[in-house]
Nucleic acid binder design. Structure first.
Lengths: 232, 232
DNA sequence: GTTTTGAAAATTGTATACAGGCCTGTCGAT
DNA sequence: ATCGACAGGCCTGTATACAATTTTCAAAAC
């Protein structure tokens, strides 16, 4: 963890992790002096990190009142899902137009590698990481660094909700079916990209993403309950 | 301009304006102590503002070396154009699905209002502002605040290049034709949205945006020349 | 019992001082 | 003449102190 030499960067990494996991409750005020002790840095680099997180959408800042955790509302989450759909659709379009066969084959290779783990894994965090990695690799086919950067940001901001969703699916035992569907969706997308068929690929992607966003309201409610009844 | 009470916000506004206009040359190192005098703020709020601009993509930060102006490369600009296409396409899709007729009519109304000014105006900055405003209004139909926020950011980051482009078109006298094309393109897009025809609307939009991105390499070269031969 | 007022406490925003690293320019060696 | 080491100054990163504002809490008035 002592990777970064400067304390502002260290504070930023830790705070971002906390923000992703909603260690701050939605809407809650973030106390600076408490964090200085917790992270062993002074207020200057701490505030630098907090400001970065504001610009990235993890926190909000009210003048004269300091920093607050972003609210967790169904509307906001749905917005993020829509932006995600926008960015990934574009990535597919550009990827099909630009990526060479080797790159696309590499994406399919990743699916092959993770197929077994994906089917057997019962750990929500691991499943989500594999899923996210596939989507990031897909996005990287675009060769567009800005697109990738924005998508990474969006993914981090919806990660918690998706995690809670997966948790629930595993508990309900309904994961197997849904999980397989997700995996085969990835396969469908990858194959369409490989065949350079833009419309089918984009359509498959949008179906894949939109499936979740329909359940968003319930998802957010569930996420709230997990946050305020911290048993798991 | 003395709108914001806190100096960090004031510094941020001024710095962002400077960054948009490339008052810092591409790749140039930003000297903090020089800016503290220029903006009459101390280093703490100044650095806060600089960090925000880094997170927004206007500046870069090298550890131990401070802040630098973002580089101005054709690849980067093209990436931004692609992201813009992604966001606006999504906005159209969502807008058609969600906006009521009154909202769409309001968009058309804006076109009517500005039609005369658009045809006669010879001021690049004003033309660009009208164009940008149309696209922002279009984006707002989506009802997606995050989408709007990201698009606003992208627009600011390509504004300078677009401005230089318009400048050149006006000087060449070739504006009339191109300008009319642009205006009628807006009309085509708006009408397709009004008719709730998603595919044609998106297609028209992509044509409209992509037209520029083909000339990006030349555009960036021109922008460079304007930056380093400051006559205008 | 509710609301208002007031002061104290806590917290944020800003300035400034200091430490450490980076860059530059000079000097010496090959 | 070119390259490399080194010293000095400059700049960045961080800590801390101070000022101003906000929040809190309790007491008093209605």
């Amino acid at each position: 963890m002592a990777e970064h030499p400067n304390s502002a960067e260290r504070a930023y990494e830790k705070l971002r992790t906390m923000a992703i996991h909603f260690d701050f409750k939605p809407g809650e005020r973030v106390n600076e002096s408490a964090l200085t002790k917790r992270l062993s840095v002074s207020r200057t680099p701490l505030r630098e990190a907090l400001n970065r997180l504001v610009a990235e959408g993890f926190l909000t800042a009210a003048p004269g009142q300091g920093f607050f955790c972003r609210p967790l509302s169904p509307e906001r989450i749905m917005e993020l899902y829509q932006v995600r759909a926008a960015l990934e659709s574009e990535a597919i379009i550009r990827g099909i137009a630009r990526a060479d066969d080797a790159q696309i084959t590499s994406l399919c290779g990743y699916l092959d590698e993770t197929e077994d783990a994906y089917s057997t894994c019962q750990n929500a965090a691991e499943l989500l990481e594999m899923d996210e990695r596939f989507h990031m690799k897909l996005a990287e086919l675009s060769g567009n660094a800005e697109l990738v950067r924005l998508l990474a940001n969006i993914n981090e901001r919806i990660r918690y909700v998706r995690l809670v969703n997966l948790h629930q699916l595993i508990e309900q035992g309904g994961l197997a079916g849904d999980d397989q569907a997700s995996l085969s969706m990835h396969r469908v997308i990858a194959l369409a990209v490989q065949a350079r068929q833009t419309e089918p690929a984009v359509q498959a992607l949008r179906d894949h993403i939109e499936r979740r966003s329909e359940e968003t309201v319930d998802l957010v409610r569930l996420a709230f309950s997990r946050l305020y009844v911290p048993d798991s």
